[in-house]
Design a protein around this nucleic acid. Structure first.
Lengths: 163, 163
DNA sequence: CTCGGATCGTCTGGACTCGGATGATTGTGT
DNA sequence: ACACAATCATCCGAGTCCAGACGATCCGAG
């Protein structure tokens, strides 16, 4: 499934970043696309469909009981789209959908042992990639990066001006 | 066209960032989504369909003559998808497709004066948003952010390990 | 108890994306 | 001059996304 696209996208992104090196917006997109491509590739290598599949697994990994709707909010995936992800993960026996006996409307997706293993291997692969991407970067600089990204991600003022 | 979705996405992103504050991958996604939502909103306000519409305009703004295929590579938009963007921009008279007399296969999209005006107003809105998002951040920290993002975006080693 | 509104998961229809096919045009070898 | 591969824009089809509709279930008011 679509493994040959990585090559061309990689090239395209390279020229992208080269063309607009000073623009925060473009840089954000380019950096995100880059890690997305890598993560999708890593996910495909271990039988997952997407980096999003792993994201869902990671949200389930803490064992906390969550409704599908709650889960969709946590991982920022549309509730409709989440269904297809859960269907796929369930078919691969990485999760199971349990029914809450106290409320038969809701389904509680829960990670299986197999799912936990896939999550763990993916997580180490991702951590290695992150470490490599930031290799040689000082602790202080990393902290700056994370802090500013977090600020951009959660800054409500940026959006408030449009209202 | 889909203006009501901004609200819900914003909420979702907020919880997203809160749930995984230490993960570079998640932070990148959350930050990018945030600025994308803002830019899409700003684009819609001035009659554009997308932030991507503006991205295409920005690539045409330097007046350099580019083939559609070249353009698609510069802005990281699939050549097929670019067609629909150009069709829309042409319908709005923000660009024109000219034919290269020396090679009648190619179309050279060129920005019009109206397109230049839309680009300029959007650019100032974006710059203001970026300035607000980084308000109070020291020059040195900004430089760190841009440099590391650029490095992540262009780092070839990260992908090379998958081959 | 029962009715009505709220909330869950799922389904559906229309729009978008993108790999590959197609047609037009180019240049190159002979 | 002519065949033929290469390259451009465009079209098409399979896959995906998501807002809204829907049935099932819960809960509070009467």
């Amino acid at each position: 499934m679509g493994t040959s696209l990585h090559e061309s996208e990689t090239q395209a992104l390279a020229s992208c970043a080269a063309a607009y090196p000073a623009d925060l917006t473009i840089l954000l997109h380019a950096a995100t696309n880059r890690v997305t491509i890598y993560l999708d590739h890593a996910a495909a290598e271990m039988g997952l469909n997407d980096a999003r599949d792993w994201l869902v697994l990671s949200a389930l990994e803490d064992g906390q009981q969550r409704t599908q709707l709650e889960l969709s909010r946590v991982v920022c995936v549309d509730k409709t789209t989440l269904i297809t992800v859960l269907d796929r993960l369930e078919r691969q026996e990485l999760i199971v959908r349990t029914v809450d006996p106290s409320d038969r409307r809701v389904r509680i997706p829960q990670i299986t042992d197999a799912g936990r293993r896939v999550f763990a291997t993916f997580a180490t692969a991702r951590d290695a990639a992150e470490a490599r991407a930031l290799d040689g970067v000082s602790k202080a600089d990393r902290e700056v990066l994370m802090r500013l990204l977090g600020r951009i991600a959660t800054d409500t003022d940026t959006l408030a001006t449009t209202a």
